[in-house]
Amino acid sequence: MTSAACVQDVTKEYRMDGGTVRALRGVSLEVPEGDYVAIMGPSGSGKSTLLNLLGCLDRPTSGRIMLGDKDVTRASDDQLSEIRASRIGFVFQSYNLIPQLTVLENIEVPLYYQGRFASDDRRRCLELAEMVGLSDRLKHRPTQLSGGQQQRVAIARSLANDPYFMLADEPTGNLDSVTAAEILELLVELNHNGKTIIMVTHETDIGRQAKRIIQLKDGMILEKE
């Protein structure tokens, strides 16, 4: 079985004015297809750094990162953009929809940056909107939607390009508990249908929804459950 993501002994250092900050000190991790992983840890543990590396927003200082069968360790900025466009789906804490676009247009954005747009893409986006229960809100702007609805749009958007995995960064952080539960339910359902999900959270309750939890502390993995 191929893995959606494979991280091998990755370190990440940031140069600050004071000196070097070592955010990750040798992390190895494998996420098989169909997995649902929660990356947990206190702030400063390096979970955001790991998320950025998995999301191809940044490159590691050393080590190796494979997404599917692609080595992204030394990819150029444009190559990373291409991988993000075609193979990664982001879900953010604050939804991060583009305010001047409608719901449907927001879902289409990743396809747009793949440099292609065919008629079945449009159909696919409509299906995704239906899947997250927003087919009656297609022409609405993000500001006209509730937080939960916005996060649903973001989830639909993250799936538009059929990614290796969905990267969810505190997806329920801005939501009330009822809506949060709905969103988590949606994630579980998506995982059941075969989607690979990597979620970053600092709440244990939410982390428990995942199949397994990876605890990070001081840039290292503590334990695997």
Partner: peptide, 16 residues
């Protein structure tokens, strides 16, 4: 800036 960040995360190249 935020919009630019979102677009970059969703796969926009610098050229885009």
């Amino acid at each position: 800036t935020r919009e630019i960040g979102i677009r970059r995360a969703l796969g926009a190249k610098r050229g885009d």
